[in-house]
Design a binder for these strands. Sequence first.
DNA 1: TTATTTTAATTTGTGTGCAATATATTTGTT
DNA 2: AACAAATATATTGCACACAAATTAAAATAA
Lengths: 146, 146
Amino acid sequence: MSALFDPLLLDHQICRSLYSASSALTRAYRPLLAPLGLTYPQYLVMLALWERDQVTVGDLCTRTRLDPGSLTPLLKRMASKGLLLRARAKEDERKRVIALTRAGLELKARALTIPEQIACASGLSLEQGLQLRELTEQLYSHLDTA
Amino acid sequence: MSALFDPLLLDHQICRSLYSASSALTRAYRPLLAPLGLTYPQYLVMLALWERDQVTVGDLCTRTRLDPGSLTPLLKRMASKGLLLRARAKEDERKRVIALTRAGLELKARALTIPEQIACASGLSLEQGLQLRELTEQLYSHLDTA
DNA sequence: TTATTTTAATTTGTGTGCAATATATTTGTT
DNA sequence: AACAAATATATTGCACACAAATTAAAATAA
């Protein structure tokens, strides 16, 4: 079989490109998030909570696209750092209500410059960034609904 | 600040799109790889070895883009499954030479149809796939060299 | 009301990811 | 040759990813 069309050739795999790019981007966030005491998935949770808090674990799963099994211990760690509170919902004791503390809220100010720093470090033009977002959104939604 | 330009808005984050798309793609591989007894990173290693084996751990790191700290235990698991051997290099005792076993070699035949199945499940056109690969390659190489 | 099913979150176990540290071997220096 | 730097892996510790099993509460059915 010609190497040009070998379906198993590593250099042809979108998966490796996507996987390594995603890992590299997470790695790029690390030094920016470390001063805030956040990991990258924790940053996603904070982004969600800065938009809207007093929400359930399930809502955070949906909006961050993180796994419930990962989210529970992650939220516990963030609560122990004093960033948020995990209370039971009064109207439905199965649910938890996640609420930011003052410290969690105030952390937002220190995160404001991160997106621009990442955009710069990415080396992508604005147009390329939008294109990449559209393609990955399409891929995600197609795989997620199937 | 207008929500349209809020840099911290989740829906504007390329990182979340990339992260969730990459996770979803890995998840899509899982049911295809499970019958072969492989995880996704292990599959990347097998792709590399099917192309060229009798190589060092460092070579596998480079080609799969996986971390050396992840690769060592991963290779041990694959060796214990009988897919490969981890011998010391005679000319340089620091290095290990990773070689496929017959079973590892023969597994390739059962993996041949995976790329097409993934391509189909992705919902991306050929052109979109190429575009996505180019963008993620650019992102990876830019972040990796910096 | 009691029993069944569904839902929300948690727990468990295995496999990573990765920074930091350690170990052993080789190469380069004095 | 003895010693210092560099190299190739391996180890450690913590954080995640995720399928599967579990728990507890709420909704629904009998």
